[in-house]
Design a protein around this nucleic acid. Sequence first.
DNA 1: AGCATTTGTGTAAACGTTTACATTATACAC
DNA 2: GTGTATAATGTAAACGTTTACACAAATGCT
Lengths: 355, 355
Amino acid sequence: MSQSISNQESETENPGQVSIKDVARLADVSIATVSRCLNHPDRVRENTRARVQQAILKTGYSPNTLAQSFRRGKTQVIMVVLPSIGDPFFTEVMKGIRSVASSRGYSLLISETQFNTMTDDEIGAMVVSRQADGIVLLASMSPFGTEVLSSKSHQALPIVIGCENITPDLAGFPSVRIDNVAAAREATDYLIALGHRKIAFIHGQMSSLLTRERERGYRASMRAADLPIEDRWVVEGKLSIQGAIQATRKLLNHDHNPTAIFCANDEMAMGCIHEIKSSGLKIPKDISIIGFDDIRYAEILDPPLTTIRQPAEKIGERVMHRLLLEVEAGRSRNGQVEIVPHELIIRESTGPGNV
Amino acid sequence: MSQSISNQESETENPGQVSIKDVARLADVSIATVSRCLNHPDRVRENTRARVQQAILKTGYSPNTLAQSFRRGKTQVIMVVLPSIGDPFFTEVMKGIRSVASSRGYSLLISETQFNTMTDDEIGAMVVSRQADGIVLLASMSPFGTEVLSSKSHQALPIVIGCENITPDLAGFPSVRIDNVAAAREATDYLIALGHRKIAFIHGQMSSLLTRERERGYRASMRAADLPIEDRWVVEGKLSIQGAIQATRKLLNHDHNPTAIFCANDEMAMGCIHEIKSSGLKIPKDISIIGFDDIRYAEILDPPLTTIRQPAEKIGERVMHRLLLEVEAGRSRNGQVEIVPHELIIRESTGPGNV
DNA sequence: AGCATTTGTGTAAACGTTTACATTATACAC
DNA sequence: GTGTATAATGTAAACGTTTACACAAATGCT
């Protein structure tokens, strides 16, 4: 009992991290056995396991994740690249991503592109240096970014794309999204069915393929109904409330105004509604507004917003699910595009066109 | 020139990651020199450095971050714990955090508590396993969580607390926030100055010390003005739009209604405004609303929301700044509380009380 | 009892870095 | 030239794991 003199390991004394060695010494086994207790408990005898358990408790040992990651070559971290966590839509997608991730023991490293391509470098670094086991890409990327992603020179990290339409250079990557063209078309069709003929389209940054797809849907719908599109009806603003306000202002400052506006997402619709109301027009009496995404604010806007609902959380879940399939099962990348259903939610921001 | 036969390392052949060894071989130097080229370029001769540079390019080498983290015992990752990234206020704080973090080469690992304490485990695991170099805590925690955080048994990770008031058990940790009591008091004072006497307070989860502080400010203001507070005027709802709607409904369902409502944050104010308007009352004519945070939607609400502005982004910057001070300079934790200024933003959701 | 399995444990190498220390090359003085 | 200080490089150990392999012990068979 009266053990050694100076060098007792006893309790919480030493500041240096307690390692597997300390446990091994205390339990009087080899470090291999301790490791096995943790990773393959079935391969070690009941008896020993208990002793090791004791030692672990007594020493307060917990594995050094850094060493584990290093050794195993896996980090249990998934990187998520998105335009902005501020957007309520992405928040919702993140919810799905997070729930799957954390149920499977993964942490999330989040990188915002802030609608520009500045983080390409960051992403490149990530891919190359494998700080993450996989990447969820919710943003469109610059050509450079996509190049480094798909580069074969580094053993490729698994990537799954969510929400965004994939650019030609990213073809081959699995993805999960709605059919943006069809959805936008449905939205526009609805406005037309209400009797509107002069329909504008407000969208954000052109860099995003996604909004371009929505524009395509809009144009397709108009063409199908034989309705003309004036150039000034399609207006680009910064993808923010302020951007939408300015875009709307441009739209209203003329005679021959549109009687309906299709906003490429709900956040822009919020700015749009605000600007229209402060210009004295009534919604939907004078002008109808339709949005896209169905964020949580959509239904409490005044008036409540008619919009296209994306199953945001479900998209997040599916994306993560498929990513983990590649990460864990090493499943070879099957570039299948998974289309999830959208839904037109009719509220009160749209009304009959006064024809 | 016609070099060796079979075992040439030449280009992109092998799938296994190219390591410092490959570079060393190609440049005909030791691995130590390669490492030095990367970390202390000044300590290696111009000439050699160039040769190594070449080799790095040729091999496409990039350091294995996992190995580096392991060896250096640092991850260049900061963990951020917050209630919900969905809240526009935290989004703004994150902006500040992120800008400082990325300018200093840190990535962010985000953990949401979702207003409950479920992630305590996660945090504990993090602390213990040092997957991050430091923690930014923007959420209140359960007693268990705080215990593991401040536990001395593991060498403590640097922690800085933002926004939240600190619980007694977290005393001693540095923090950055506004003075919630004073701010809430200022908001209430303003309503009183407008002539309101029946003022309600809607808040979220009681678990958060922060909202309790705001309630204190509210009560202090009322007391100072000798105004009674009816029990049913202080109502708790889930910290969400729906929660606020229900809370408001409770508030309105009686005679003897309050003429003003102070909402503990803007998100709840949004629900509150919505419910009041759909009940047919006019804002601010029949009832005044004041919020807290000044999120980006506040000014485009209908009516634009009077609220207390927190310098969210700045808080984020300061928090991160101070955290990195501890992380990098190993500065001992100085538990100083840094109070940043708030500001009453008067818009149109508040008007004279009809006394 | 002997042999063949099966089960449990230990030994030691490996992962890719960084770095203290030893060694060698270079510069500068005389 | 020799000697000394300085600069550049190499050698090898270390970080904390996991795991292939070797070995020992226990079990099951005849």
